[in-house]
């Protein structure tokens, strides 16, 4: 892992969580859950492209795209009745959006543990988000020629 600084988008999300009280952090996570971007229509009908994050308690599926300019686009879907998982997916989808493939690969693996949710949500549940990040990176690696 490199020691490069956290990308601006993720640093900002972390700051937003850390400046809140524990209880309010849950509310912010819920806001992220509600803001999980809808799938672009071109993917909405292609569940075959998506990979299930089996480490999560609820069915969540991700699909990573790397465009011609090496910019990463992370698409995710998770059910309404699984707001925690939706929140995790939304943080990554929004925080990684617009980063280059290399910037995504350089995101520290322990980013999910550093945003102040280990107490409010529990370390156990945070592991679902770590798995989501790890799978995203693996997909990015697969899509970028070595």
């Amino acid at each position: 892992m490199t020691t490069s600084a956290l990308p601006e988008s993720l640093a900002q999300i972390r700051e937003e969580f850390l400046e809140l009280e524990q209880g309010d952090r849950l509310i912010l996570l819920l806001e992220f859950a509600n803001d999980l971007p809808e799938l672009p229509p071109r993917y909405a009908e292609h569940p075959d492209l998506f990979e299930r994050v089996v480490e999560c308690q609820s069915p969540v599926f991700i699909f990573t795209e790397v465009d011609d300019d090496h910019i990463v686009h992370l698409h995710a879907t998770a059910p309404r009745e699984a707001p925690t998982t939706r929140g995790f997916a939304s943080i990554l989808a929004q925080g990684l959006s617009g980063l280059t493939a290399q910037q995504v690969l350089d995101v520290p693996d322990d980013f999910p543990n550093t945003i102040g949710l280990t107490q409010a949500v529990s370390l156990l549940r945070i592991r679902g988000m770590s798995a989501m990040l790890a799978r995203t990176k693996r997909q990015v690696r697969e899509r970028v020629p070595a």
């Binding site: 996570l29 819920l30 308690q57 009745e81 707001p83 925690t84 409010a120 949500v121 529990s122 156990l124």
Partner: peptide, 22 residues
Amino acid sequence: DEDVLLYETGHIPGAVKVDWHT
């Protein structure tokens, strides 16, 4: 609930939340 945020999305009026883990 299993999902720590589900209560916040809506609950039975007057209900309080107890999370198994936290």
